[in-house]
Design a protein around this nucleic acid. Sequence first.
DNA 1: GTCTATAGGCCGATAGAC
DNA 2: GTCTATCGGCCTATAGAC
Lengths: 171, 171
Amino acid sequence: MTIKKEQILETALHLFAKEGYSATSTSKIAKAAGVSEGLIFRHFGNKKNLLKELMIQTQETINHLFLPIFEETDPKEVLIKTITLPLRIDKEYYDYWRLQYKLRWEPEYTNNNKFVPILNKFEETFTALNYKEPKQEAILLNQIVNSIAIDILLDRFNEDYIPFLKKKYKL
Amino acid sequence: MTIKKEQILETALHLFAKEGYSATSTSKIAKAAGVSEGLIFRHFGNKKNLLKELMIQTQETINHLFLPIFEETDPKEVLIKTITLPLRIDKEYYDYWRLQYKLRWEPEYTNNNKFVPILNKFEETFTALNYKEPKQEAILLNQIVNSIAIDILLDRFNEDYIPFLKKKYKL
DNA sequence: GTCTATAGGCCGATAGAC
DNA sequence: GTCTATCGGCCTATAGAC
């Protein structure tokens, strides 16, 4: 991976996340990245393919952020790590999240099953904690984490919410 | 309001909700609506203004859907009506919701305070039901409703979730 | 007065050629 | 890395049909 190619990816991530895919032109990316516009097409062929490579990176990044939760065996710790996950994310990763949530609404983008592994992990956790309906509890927890992440990204999150959740789950 | 103007608004709502604002050209709207492209500019001046008029309609529609919850006085009924709200929404309104959730991520669009009145209603409700932290409970309930709506719109909602929630809230 | 059809200007976007 | 071609998007203008 050359330096310029990385610059293009980084800049495109930021602009796509901020303005949206359609609203971001390749020339805007080139200018912001300090490269010639042609280089984008040399490396990625076309604009759509640039987005595709970005989404692979995004998925890897997000999987990496979930890893500590997957590896945790103590069920209470799983819940604590899950609830506080959005808080522990470094600001440099925000664009990845933003892009992810933005692109959910694009008609082409349809990998609904992406969250299934984490849902299974949650279900196991609630089973271990003797919750009555672990499957539904997993869905609820997943919704809560997503909502917190969205609130943080939209800059309307209130810190008091976390201790409230910890009490709810008796942590 | 003339028929053609309504057709333009209706078609634009659908296309903006489906493809996004930037990705939808005025010529595409005109073709889909069966009108000449010039008519769009005659009625709305420019594309941005068309979106603006749509957003006013959208806000009115959504306010109207929340009205029964606002008018309900029995706190348990408030919760039941809230939890089942996304289910009770007719499919013809889906595009309004979709547009709303899509546009949250646009940089210009920043009316965070829009959900404050419903949050207040929820807080009163939880206070009446003697919940310990009504403010946080209101946030949680709001997150749940939004998540359900999103799941429905993204076609990944499971009906079993509603009875689970009703049990949670002892309804 | 509402709308269509058409023509065209201007600009920016994608892409290929060199 | 630049240059250029081509296309499509936004918008204006006008002449005329309903």
